[in-house]
Every structure is written in C-alpha cells, then in structure tokens.
Design a protein around this nucleic acid. Sequence first.
DNA 1: TTTAGGG
DNA 2: CCCTAAA
Length: 729
Amino acid sequence: MGGSLDSEEPVFRWFNETGYSPLAVMKLPISPVKGSMADHVDLKRLDYGFNGYQVPAMPRATRSARRRGTVKKRAEENQMCAFDLLATVAGKLLLEKESTPASSNTSNQKDKCIIVDQDRHDGNVALKVETCDQGSCDRKPFVSEQVSQAPSVNHSSKKPSFPKNDDHSSFTSIMTTSNCSERLVAINSDASKIKNEVGSSCSQIEGLSMYRESGDCKLEGETKTLVKDESNNTGKVLIGTAADRRSSEYPTVFKGKPLVLPTSDSSAKAPLCGDHVPQTSLPSTRDDVKVVSRDDDEKSSGCTHPSTTTRYLKRVPRIGDRRIRKILASKYWKVGSKFKDETLSSPDGNNKPSCRGRKDCYKRQRTQMTVPFKKRKLFDHSSVWASDGGTNSEGFFNSIEKSIGDASDSCAKLQGGTGTSCSVAGQRTSFQRRDSHVKLRIKSFRVPELFIEIPETATVGSLKRTVMDAVTAILGGGLHIGVLMQGKKVRDDNVTLLQSGISQDKQLDALGFTLEPNSPQTPPPMCSGDSPHLLSGDAPEILARYPPNQEMVGHTNANVLPEPHVANLSNFVESDHDSTPSPTDTSVDKSTIDSKALVTVPEMNAEALSVVPALRKSKRSDMAQRRIRRPFSVTEWQSPYDPQYEKFHVVKWRDVKLRAFDNAKHRTYVDLKDKWKTLVHTARISPQQRRGEPVPQDLLDRVLTAHAYWSQHQAKQQLKQQPETCLLL
DNA sequence: TTTAGGG
DNA sequence: CCCTAAA
C-alpha cells in the first residue's frame, strides 16, 4: 500500500486541511486496473475467506448488507471486505505518510496550451488547446504556469476572483463560411468560474468541439476528454481544490493528470484558457436570469411553497431545470395542442388544484404527466413524427417542409416556430459562388419546437424569460448542425460542398440547416454550449465536424434538451445577436434582426402561449415532472471522470459535480452518483449482460478500481470507528 | 444539503 | 431518474 502513496504529495496535506480523509486521497490508479489498488494490494489473497463479511461501521452499509443478506455474492464484495481490512492498515500508513507534507506544486505535468491553429484542410482558424509535451512544446503551457503560481494566489483570491471573469473573457469566435479560409470560431467563454474550481486542463479544442461546447462551459467537458488521454501515465495532476469553501483548496499536484486550476490570475494570464475555464461570469448571469424566471414561476405556480423561493435562488441550476417547464418536443407540441384543446374544453383541469404535499403534487403530476411520457415514448420511437410526417430525420425534415408548405409560410414561418428545427437558412440562404468558395448566408436558424408551460398569471416578462430559458436550454444542450440538401440529411461530414452539390447554385434553395440536439450518444452534452455560435455560423463546416449522425433531428431537440441551461441564457442572447450575424457577416450584411432565429422564437412563444393556458393544468404537474432522461454518453462521463476526477470522487460527489460537471446543468451530483453506481454495476457484470452504449473497458476498470478504493476508504473509516468488528481476520 | 441506497 | 433515510 505504502508504495502507492506519495508522501510528498501535497494532496494529502491538502486533504487533511480540508478535512478529507487522507486515505481518500490516496492516489487511485487511474489507468487500467493494473494501476489500481490491486497492484498495491494483493486483493486476491484477501478475498479468501471474506465471504459474508459485513461492513459494520456504516449504518447504511449495514442496512443494505442486511437486506442483501450476509453473504456477499460477488468477489467484489469480498474485495470490499478485504479493502476494509486493508483500509485499516492502509489508513495508518497513509496517515503516516501524510504527515510529511509534500512540496507544494512541482508540476511537471504536461502542460496544455491553447493555440491558434489553422486548419489545414480548410485553412480555417481554430483554437486549439493542446497538450504540450513536456518541455518540448514551445507553446506556453499556461496551465502549468498558472498552477504553479496559483497556490499562493489562490489562497488570497479565493472565490472573490469572480470579477476576474471578465478577464477570462470570453472569446467569441465567429465562423465564416464565406471564406473557407476565414472561419472564426468564437467562443464565449465566460470562462472563469467563480469558484476556484479546477479548470480543466485544456485539452485540445478543435473546431467543432469548440463550437459545441465553447460557449459556456463546455470546454471543460471537452477538455477533460482530451486530457485524459495524456494524463494517465505520467503527468502530475493538479487538483484544484474544490471548492469554494476551503481556502486550502488550492490545487495540489497529483501525479497523474494535470488539472488546471483556473484562478482568476491564471485566467488572466492565459486568456485562451478562459474557454476551458468554467466561466465565472456565466454563473452569475445565469443566476440572475434564473432567479428571475424562477420567481415568476414560483409565483405563478401554486404548488411551490413560498419558502422554497429562497431556496431556489440558491440553487439556480437545478431549480431552473425543474422549475421551468419547457418541453421541447415536436410531438410534444402536438400533444400540447391537444392538451390545449382539452383544456379549453375543460379549463379547470384537474391539475389546477393546488398541491399541498409534494407527494400529492407528484402523483398528480404523474397522472397528468401523460404528456411527458408520451413525449418520451414518441421520441424514442420517433413514431410521433411519423404521424406528422417522417420518423427519421429525413422524414422529419420532409415533414417539416411539408408542414411549412402547408402553412404556406416562408421561412418566416419557420421562425414562427411551428416548424421543426430546420433552420431557415436553407431557404433563405443564398449562395454566391465566388471562386471556389461558397457563401452562405444563414439568416436565421429556426429553433426547434418548444413546448412551454406557463401560468396564466405569468407576466409577459416572465414569459419572455421562460422562452428564453427554453431556447437556451435547447441551445445549451449542445446542438449539432445538420445539413440538409433537398430535404435529405447530409450525413457524410467528409463530403465536400462541391461533392455534395451544396456549392451549386441550383442547390442553394435546397440547402437547409437543422439544429440537432445532442443525441445521448453525443459526447458533450454537458456543455451548455453555445450552440448559438454554431448556429450563427457556418454551416457546412460545422457539419463536417459534427457528426450529424444522430438519429434525432429537429424536433427532437426539444426533447433532448428540455432542461434549460440557464447559464447560456445571457450568452445566448448576446451571442445570438453577435454571433449570428457575424458568421455570415463576413460575407454578408448582417441584417441582424432577421438573422436571429432565436429572436424569432418569441413568436413561437406566442403560439406556445396560446397553448399554455390549456396546458396550465399540466403546468403544475410539470413541477413534478420527471426529468427527461438523458443518458450519460461515454464521452460525457469519461471525460469528467478522468482519473483526476476519480480522485475528486474520492472526495465528494459534489466536488465532482463542480469540477467536472459544473457546466452540465442537468447533471446533479446525485446523477453523477447514480451514474457511477451504474458504471460500477456495469463493470461487474459480464460484457454480455451489458446493454446500451458500450463502455470502454478501461473506464470500467478505472471505475472498479476507484470504487474499490473508495469502498476501502469507507471501510477504513468504519474500522477506525469500530475496529473490533472485523479486525479479527 | 449531501450521501448512500433502494426502487 | 426518483425518493428518502441519515448524516
């Protein structure tokens, strides 16, 4: 065991200071199992004879153990037991080691650099964050530097750094399709997080990724992903201290992957980093917005207790999600309308009755929830669309057009919002052929259908906010841009415009763009991303990078992203204006107004509104509505869960959330915990038994390792408390 | 408010 | 994901 620990590691000290158990700090072998505890400890030996060992200490454990029965089925269990035993021993060892304070940060870790790169292919400029190998890299490793400095600074600065956010400055990048050569990617990063969270080290951000995530926070997610690759082996990991609370938190160096702690200072130094860095500013903005909307909601909705209000204020993100009932689903839409009708017929709606008890509300909601469920169902099967038009994206698209046609509306209609996600761009887009360049003007992107529930008593202002939230949610969820040619989705990202015919004038009319929600599979759902940027810009390019693959198109968006990423909101708006025009603008006049599809949204709202009253009934229920299921993608999980985070995990889920998923508004620490739980389960079962998206074995290994370690840790604690219980063995 | 577990 | 007991 001892070998595994680095006495030198500041981490230990840090943890001590923070009150975390040193044991927890123990380095987890991030990488594959071999690095795991197993290496250090001979688990196998321990396994023997431990069957039936119960973990005494933890009440919960005990309870569960009881339920399950004394005998543990799995070897794992045994391991756990073994771990417990080990823990006791290890704990002591650790403590000893801990006592020796490590040098603070010697960070040799690999540094990541952000660089501006030109895409060779298209010659576009893209921001990249790259890892600098050791010293070799010329680029400045802002991270490492920052880190090193960070500690001292951090301390003093603590969170206060918020102001810095500005520094973090967001970049806005703009992509221009007009010239291939010029692609601007702007990222708004309100990068800095207020908290001294660990900035994710920057990993590469390349074109697409940037787009997607760049906005709010996304970067983190991305970054992480990237990071992990490198990190495992050698680098030291810096761990930002988690959070806000602990002053001591400043980053310590771990061996392992590099974590960057974005402190204000650091951010300032490394502007580029800002992207990665969780935005400080954002949160605030977000909060503001949220609050507002929330309040409104509160008022309007009878269910919530007044008292809750305060609470909500605090917990912006989560609340927001639930609070704001926006459901985006094309189908939904349909349903909604139906509902409306129904409601109209019976205005009263069952729902109305105020819910006294949460449970009551719940039940009601659930009953009422038919809609949501339906929606889900629909999504899953996409059957809904079928009714409308097509099931698949293509069909979908067609249907959209159809609908449009029926409506006999031009794009304007689209903007109106009835349409699917399809962007207006297609029709409006005008191509000019210059040289070999294709100019696209996307006047506006159509926002996927939004389903909004809002109390009748809500003010227009709140309505606006609600819509904004909904839109934000969609955008924030991470959008992909889909390119449609004559109603058909162009799936091959590698096809050139020329090849696809997009560059041909005649095709122009047929060109369309869609906003696609991140499919569950898509990697970085986390980011609230500024899809807006994406939107604004360029189409094809983006497409190329984003895998349009996801089956879900258009409408679905709504479904996927029901939860608003509030954070984006502010960005969103601005970005909207700014970015939207800009992308094009190189080539075009930004007739801004038109171009803002988002802006148009409000119109949708109008419709939505009309619906709303009827929905009202559901409204209340909506409070209780079950969140939409948003399965973790491997990427989403894996990145944040990079070893670094596993270490964090050791600390607290809450910290993991803050560090790795802070950007993912829809992921609560409970979600993370649950996910972890499932990962552990997945890791334990045979591959044949696994379903869904295959999880990389290495991840599973890590999970097991970390989990085992964890368990051990807990066990140790327990043992400490009740040493006598099991020590006998 | 978080965490750990069960559902 | 939800819900809840415990902490």
